[in-house]
Write a protein that binds this DNA or RNA. Structure first.
Lengths: 147, 147
DNA sequence: CCCTTTAATGTGCATATGCACAGATGTGAT
DNA sequence: ATCACATCTGTGCATATGCACATTAAAGGG
């Protein structure tokens, strides 16, 4: 008899991932609060620090809906951390990290690093690497291996 | 020279967790779309199926801000899946799963289980258990071990 | 040259998330 | 009795997330 139990749902991978995401996000956000940045904004700035990208490519890399990224960029544009310029081909825009964005990224780096290290202390480097690897494999499998 | 590199940030535990959370959430949500439920709503219903709870206790269990839970309950109350009753002590309310809520939970169960199993196929039971354990240890450490 | 198609940007709606703060209600000290 | 305090509920604001849909501009076909 497949009696439906609360405990079955408690093993939900998605629930557990979201649960720890909330906790970890707050950990980083509290650390970063002095920088005026959120941990959700860091990967965008950091990725653009490496190279200019179109919104579609950046959204793909983030495994995020294109329209979600569009709105997430608004606070960054308002703060003059990121701006967009036409590429010349079609309506395609290129996202560029501004000087202020690069400066803020540098300022946030040691703060982020401290938050990261306090997590490393909990599980250890090795277990984190395994964990991130397994998560990446799961994500790549679900997105068709395009990431 | 602590040259700040994009690759450093790519190892951010928070980013990786949020990244895979997005992907996995979409996986479950697409599966559940026929039920009119989101995977974020499942743990609330499932927890209330086990016992009536106050909002504060439920928020604590979810490691979620109390006011976030308050708003997340609104769609569930509107759909008559959950209702709240006074407990008699102070203004404290008790959240109760309705008949409809319990029925919907049963309907969602096999769908959820299929989504869960397709993830299990990717990493295997063993690696998922290790992963969830490590995530739980991280979360408990950050929340002061109260969960 | 116009019309369809296609690809890119952008909007409206609904939910998810947390912080600062306001409102209401009981408890306890004096 | 009253006032301070603690506790619980609720609101306002800002960002995060995705779907359905609208808009705009370039490319081709006739």
């Amino acid at each position: 008899m497949p009696e439906i139990s609360f405990h079955d749902f408690q093993n939900c991978y998605c629930f557990n991932l979201r649960w720890v995401s909330r906790v970890v996000t707050q950990h980083y956000d509290h650390a970063l609060s002095g920088c005026g940045l959120r941990v959700t904004q860091l990967p965008i700035l950091a990725r653009l620090a490496a190279e200019d990208m179109t919104m579609a490519d950046l959204a793909d890399w983030l495994a995020m809906d294109r329209t979600t990224l569009l709105r997430n960029l608004r606070p960054l544009e308002r703060a003059d951390l990121v701006y967009s310029v036409p590429t010349g081909e079609g309506r395609k825009l290129k996202l560029v990290l501004s000087q202020e964005g690069a400066a803020l990224l540098e300022k946030a780096y040691p703060v982020w690093r401290a938050a990261q290290q306090s997590l490393t202390r909990i599980l250890g480097q090795q277990r984190w690497e395994t964990l991130i690897n397994d998560l990446a494999m799961t994500g790549e499998n679900l997105t068709g291996g395009s990431n």
